[in-house]
Structures are given as structure tokens and as C-alpha cells.
Design a binder for these strands. Structure first.
Lengths: 262, 262
DNA sequence: CAGTGGTCTAGACCACCTC
DNA sequence: AGGTGGTCTAGACCACTGG
């Protein structure tokens, strides 16, 4: 058998003010941080921990739950609790919407993914007309109806991002933007062909815990926040021609930006 | 008394596969999303929920814990469980390191905060010389010793950000950068005076759940992720002259970036 | 089948807050 | 003092996984 992890865990300090379940969590966290437990390794079972520390099962479960919400471990029903493997992260560079990529016929997500050497996919595409949500209308500067393009992106089969693009109907109606497949270079390439030469994008980045529906759509583990990114595209006339509302699994991305020191 | 919130909660569905504590969480979440419970409002007490749903206290506590990890509510010992108020967020604009701010004698955090109309503070300043952590050395392109400036930023008294700047010793030693107070315009102004004209900054943005130490330093509530931002400053010679490693309370910030469409 | 985690019960004592 | 949430116990039954 492998080395006896449970035997090497720190003992409880009965004189400490710190709650027992926190002390148990501390000792397991310590074992992970010191590398005694590596990525993907199985933690001692609840029963083993109950024996080792001489506490009730709920106390052990409290400790494990704490580590889960910290994003350090993942419980798998019927199998055990495992040190969470760090999934490969994708770097999104600040030139990801550069025209040269569109010119090559690649949409931003696809170009980024291929550069990172992973297989990208898109699914659950929904295109419809609707009244824009308030936040979107504020950014578009209009409450008139929009075309909403919703899709989900996957990475080697794992869902990592959902995105909804909102384009004013007066721009999108009757164009390929309203089709499920917007063609080479994505909707930004189509917008430029329609005479809306793109000038810049403004991105707003937030982070928070996922709503239950986001947890479902992205199959998120406990302890995984989401990055909420809202991007507004402006043409050279200064008009907002698209707003893209994106929810990303935070453990799958690093966002990269270049700022001028000017 | 106020309206009877607990009486308006949805009933349990005994035929559902969904766990009872999840159904209870669902009904409370629903009340929050529908606005029956507003920001700062007190949820029904555990005892009230136990009576209303006819379950054991641990079942109710499980439901409340779920809502806490979702960041929707905050439990306060001896007082109750409350709908989490959305703290005022600060927008960080992509021109926050523009030279015109330094010229006005303001460091980036101060300038941003004043623009947002909040009172900024800095505390627990530590300045020392050390070997750079591996990640920092990689960005500086050197493993030689650095000057590390650690500080914590507060917002109307609330800690919202910790930051550590690493500057190569051959640049910083003997200058005002090595002093606790770097002078007007902050260390970037000093770097430029020393002949390192700044060209651009590269920022990397990640999000994850906080480590216990970060939870302490930022006094984070359950269900609050952190934004981990690493900024590298480059001078016009292309040399990395500073790396700043920042941990921000995710509920206190919106990051804004402008991307070229070029 | 045995081992694992998931849910739930029915209590107990404690620490904190407000009155 | 009485209400609130925080911790802990000692059980029970269930659902999933693996050999």
C-alpha cells in the first residue's frame, strides 16, 4: 500500500480555541500544501478520519466540506475525496480580437483555443430576437429589440464558458449574423463587412460564485467561482454594435491584458 | 411585525428526487431573487425554518450553508442570517496607470478611489529585501534579490486588496523606492525619475477561492472569491522593472479594460 | 458484496447578541 | 433572560462505485 497519509496527520490540540473541524481541515490542508498529498490523490476516507481523530462523522464531514468550498478537494460519491487537480488554464491575450485573426477566418474562441493546442467545440446554440436585459440596453444605448446569440464553449469536451451576444436588430436582421453559423471570422467579421468597422472593445471583469443554473451549465465543482465578463464592441463611429455577456469557469482561464503607460 | 416571510415560502415536494435541504435553499433563494427578501433583510431563524418545514435543524443548516457558499447570505453569530448586501464596487479603468495621474502626484489606488468618491487608506506596510518567489522571478527574468513592498488597501475602513510589489534591487536599492513612503505619484513615478521610462503593463487576471490567510487579511465573507492579479511593468528598453502581485476581494471590484480592434 | 460519500434525525452544550 | 447561530455527538438509511 501507499504511504500511510492518515497516520502522518497532525493531532488535535484540545486546548485550542479553534473548532475541531477546522483543526482537522488545517491538518489536511497542510498535507496538501506540503505535497504529502498531490493532485488527484485520494484523501483518507471519512471512516479513517473518524478513527484517527476520534470524533463524530459529522465533524469530519464539516472539515471536508470546508476544504471543498476552498476549492482544494473534490468529493466523488462512492469513490472518495480527492485533491483537486489544477485543470489546464487557457490564457486569453489582449490581442484576441485583432483584425488579423478575423481576416484568417477564425472566431476569437477558436483562434485562442487552437493556439493553446486544445480542441474547441461550440454547442447549444440558440439564436432569437428579444428585448435586451436592462444592463445590456444600457451599454447599447437603446432598449430596442436585439438579436441574442447564445452558445456554450467546450474544451476537450469540458464546458468552460457560456456566452450571449446581443446585436441591435437594425444591424443584424436579415444578415448572416442572424444565422446559426455566422461564417468565417465570426460575427465581428460580418459586422465589418456590413460597414461597421470595429474600433475597440471595452471589457468589464467581475468574479463571483455561480448561480445554480451556471453550476449546471458549466458542470462546476464546489469551490469554483465564475468570471463574469461583459464586452462591448464599438465601431469607428463610436456606436456600440454588440454586447457579449460571458460566464467563464474561473479555473479554466487566465485573462491577459496590456495597458499603456502613456 | 413585518410581513410573514416564512409563511410565504414554497412547500417541500416529498415526491421530488431533490434533497430536502436543497429544496429549502431553493425556496429561500427564490424569495431573495423575487425581492421578497431584500438586501440586508433577515432570513427566518433556523428555529422558524425547522418549524415551517418540519425537519431537523441540521437539514435547515445545510440549506443555509449552501446559500452562504453561493454568496447570497451572511450568517452573523447571535443575530441571524441576512441577505448579503452588495457592497459598492470600484471600477478600475484601463488608464489607471496613465502618466498624467503620476504627474499629478497620485498613486494609482489613491487616484482611482478619489475618483470614485471613497476614502482610501493604506496600512500594514512592509518593505524588505528577499529572493523573489519563482513566479515573480520568471516575470522579472532574473532570480536575483528584489525589494518587496507589501501593503494592504482599505476602502472606507474595509480591507479590499493586498499587494506586493517586487523591484529588482539594482534598481531600487538606495532610492526612495526602498523607503516606506515612496513619495508623490508612487513607485512608478520614482522609476521614471530613475530613467526607467515606462512603456506598458501586462496584467494577468485569475479568480479563485481565498486561502485561509487571505480570508483573514481581507476579512472575507463566505462565498466571496478573490481576484488574483499579477501586473508586470516594462520600461521602454523592454525590461521588466516591477511585478505587482495583488489579491482583491472580488465583491469590491470591477476591472475595466479597453482592447484594440486593430 | 463491501466501501465510499450523501442525507437526515434528535438531541446536547456553547458563544454571541439584544433587551 | 431569551433568542440567535456554532459546534458536536451517535446514530440511521440511502445511492453510487468497484471488484
Amino acid at each position: 500500500m501507499t504511504t500511510d497519509v492518515v497516520g502522518q496527520l497532525a493531532r488535535l490540540d484540545p486546548t485550542s480555541d479553534r473548532a475541531v473541524f477546522r483543526q482537522i481541515a488545517d491538518s489536511l490542508r497542510d498535507a496538501i500544501e506540503r505535497g504529502r498529498l498531490g493532485e488527484g490523490d485520494k484523501l483518507p476516507s471519512e471512516a479513517q478520519l473518524v478513527n484517527h481523530f476520534g470524533v463524530a462523522r459529522m465533524t469530519v464531514r464539516n472539515a471536508l466540506q470546508l476544504l471543498q468550498t476552498e476549492g482544494l478537494v473534490i468529493a466523488e460519491h462512492g469513490k472518495g475525496v480527492f485533491v483537486r487537480p489544477r485543470p489546464p488554464v487557457r490564457r486569453l491575450a489582449s490581442d484576441r480580437f485583432a483584425r488579423r485573426h478575423r481576416k484568417q477566418g477564425k472566431a476569437a474562441f477558436i483562434a485562442e483555443a487552437e493556439q493553446a493546442g486544445v480542441k474547441p467545440e461550440v454547442d447549444s446554440l440558440v439564436v432569437k430576437q428579444e428585448a435586451p436585459p436592462k444592463e445590456i440596453a444600457a451599454r447599447l444605448g437603446s432598449t430596442r429589440k436585439v438579436l441574442a446569440r447564445h452558445r456554450r464553449y467546450l474544451h476537450e469536451g469540458r464546458p468552460v464558458e457560456t456566452a450571449t451576444s446581443y446585436i441591435p436588430l437594425d444591424i443584424a436582421q436579415g444578415t448572416q449574423i442572424a444565422e446559426p453559423n455566422p461564417g468565417p471570422g465570426g460575427i465581428y467579421a460580418r459586422l465589418e463587412e456590413l460597414g461597421h468597422e470595429l474600433d475597440h472593445f471595452d471589457e468589464e471583469v467581475r468574479s463571483r460564485m455561480p448561480l445554480p443554473e451556471e453550476t449546471r451549465a458549466l458542470q462546476l465543482n464546489a469551490g469554483t467561482p465564475v468570471i463574469h465578463l461583459v464586452r462591448t464592441a464599438f465601431d469607428t463611429d463610436g456606436r456600440a454594435v454588440e454586447v457579449c455577456d460571458t460566464i467563464m469557469a474561473a479555473d479554466a482561464f487566465i485573462l491577459g491584458y496590456r495597458l499603456p503607460a502613456r
